[in-house]
């Protein structure tokens, strides 16, 4: 909530600077529309904006869910068995080294213009921070907890120690990974749309740009910004529920 409020503050400040700049320079609307012109364009096209925002939000949510789920499974697999760890670690690094911009058009070729390639791209981008943060968390169980658990569990209880000790101890790291992933969900969805689509905020921006409807393009950008912030705030809020025992110090 606090994060959302300070983001709103930043937004207001940016709008104020923007108004001042557009007044001072007197640039025409097709180069730099004023906040008022942008607002007018946004209101005039509110149905189009809303329906395209819904498309992008759907891509973000589904891409995030898919990427987070795969990241969690990958981290658990790595924690479970050393051979899997040796196999998955390079794959994990590779998944991050892939230039998503270059790959996006390929995804569109393979999966078409619909939802699927956007979900795939967002999932690919979100997978990495979730997997790497959770995997690190699972490897860094406080030694004192592990030792106490080993004495109590006796030999051959690896799975139960993982489930009852290492897993809950890694939840703060998972929460961090989820927050990082949420922060890039909107960008990933827009990259997917730019590679080929017929709806979504990224598509609407290109469409408005090609018709020199710059005020609409600005309005779209602002809706995208608000959507990204809201999604981050939501995931931030939910991820805190994973770690109710942690006291925040701010």
């Amino acid at each position: 909530m606090k994060a959302a409020l300070s983001a709103l503050g930043v937004l207001v400040a940016l709008v104020a600077i923007w108004q001042v700049v557009s007044l001072a320079t007197g640039l025409p609307a097709y180069i730099l529309p004023s906040p008022a012109q942008t607002l007018a364009a946004g209101c005039a096209q509110r149905t189009i904006l809303a329906s395209n925002a819904l498309t992008t939000l759907g891509e973000m949510v589904l891409g995030f869910a898919t990427g987070a789920l795969l990241g969690v499974l990958c981290a658990l697999a790595m924690a479970a068995a050393a051979p899997l760890r040796r196999l998955l670690r390079p794959a994990l690094i590779a998944s991050q080294a892939i230039p998503v911009f270059a790959l996006a058009p390929l995804f569109v070729v393979w999966m078409g213009y619909g939802l699927a390639p956007k979900i795939a791209i967002a999932a690919l981008v979100i997978f990495f921070p979730v997997a790497i943060a959770f995997a690190d968390g699972l490897r860094r169980t406080p030694p004192a907890l592990l030792e106490a658990a080993r004495v109590m569990a006796g030999p051959g209880a690896r799975w139960r120690v993982l489930l009852h000790i290492a897993l809950p101890a890694a939840l703060p790291a998972l929460a961090t990974g989820l927050r990082l992933g949420a922060g890039v969900a909107a960008i990933a969805a827009v990259i997917g749309e730019w590679a080929g689509s017929s709806s979504g905020l990224g598509y609407l921006m290109l469409w408005a740009n090609s018709r020199s409807q710059v005020p609409l393009m600005f309005a779209t950008l602002i809706v995208l910004f608000v959507l990204a912030i809201a999604f981050s705030a939501l995931v931030d809020h939910l991820s805190r529920r994973l770690t109710p025992w942690l006291k925040e110090t701010d």
Binding site: P142, A144, E147, H164, I165, P168
Partner: peptide, 29 residues
């Protein structure tokens, strides 16, 4: 058969008193 109360009390920070006391049972299935 041995039990250990370590110097660092090694309580689970996410678990309440009863769950901490009885964690050994869970760890033994």
């Amino acid at each position: 058969g041995v039990s250990l109360m370590a110097q660092d009390d090694a309580l689970l920070p996410w678990a309440g008193a009863i769950d901490n006391v009885a964690i050994g049972a869970r760890l033994r299935g």
